[in-house]
């Protein structure tokens, strides 16, 4: 179906999960850590389409939900939506440009973190997190950091799997 086998996709997701909890945890700058799982999900959405984005987003989000201490299913929902949205726009932009990659990942990081804030604000009656604090202290630094880290990772993944524009893999 895809140029990358399902096994490889899931292997990348599991590897991303372990790297996120170990290596990337130590790469903290100003309290921000790059979100490797989101990066991978957006990559699959952009290069393999909405169905793959949704599927990988669900799998990655579920793993996040298991290892995090947060409302169950919340990450599965947010990452599924992010992967799906990345897939929807996959045919409309040129994706092999590094600047485009950065903008996509930057945008999706902001989208996913704001969605998280919105959902938790609706569910939790005791959230005392100031929106300005959250946006300026977490969302923006994380989005910039994730966007920058995504550039070499996307180049590597594109090299490994030789993914070109749409007609090459759909």
């Amino acid at each position: 179906m895809y140029k990358i086998s399902r096994f490889q996709i899931y292997l990348i997701i599991v590897a991303a999960l372990f790297l996120q909890g170990s290596v990337f945890n130590y790469m903290e700058i100003m309290g921000a850590r790059p979100d490797l799982l989101l990066m991978v999900v957006v990559f699959f959405g952009l290069f393999l389409g909405p169905a793959a984005g949704l599927e990988t987003g669900f799998a990655a989000g579920l793993l996040k939900d298991i290892f995090a201490l947060d409302f169950l299913w919340i990450n599965a929902c947010i990452l599924s939506l992010s992967g799906f949205a990345a897939g929807i726009i996959n045919t409309q932009f040129f994706k092999e440009s590094k600047r485009a990659d950065f903008i996509f990942v930057f945008g999706f990081t902001i989208f996913s973190m704001l969605l998280h804030y919105l959902i938790v604000s609706v569910i939790s009656t005791s959230l005392a997190l100031d929106f300005r604090d959250f946006f300026l202290g977490s969302v923006i630094p994380t989005a910039i950091y994730t966007g920058l880290v995504s550039i070499p990772i996307y180049v590597k993944l594109l090299d490994i799997y030789n993914l070109k524009e749409t007609e090459d893999y759909l």
Binding site: L17, G21, N25, R33, L37, A68, L69, M113, V120, S138
Partner: peptide, 12 residues
């Protein structure tokens, strides 16, 4: 283990 999420902060 550590939290892989950018929202929550927890350890295993």
């Amino acid at each position: 283990g550590r939290d892989p999420s950018n929202w929550s902060n927890s350890i295993i």
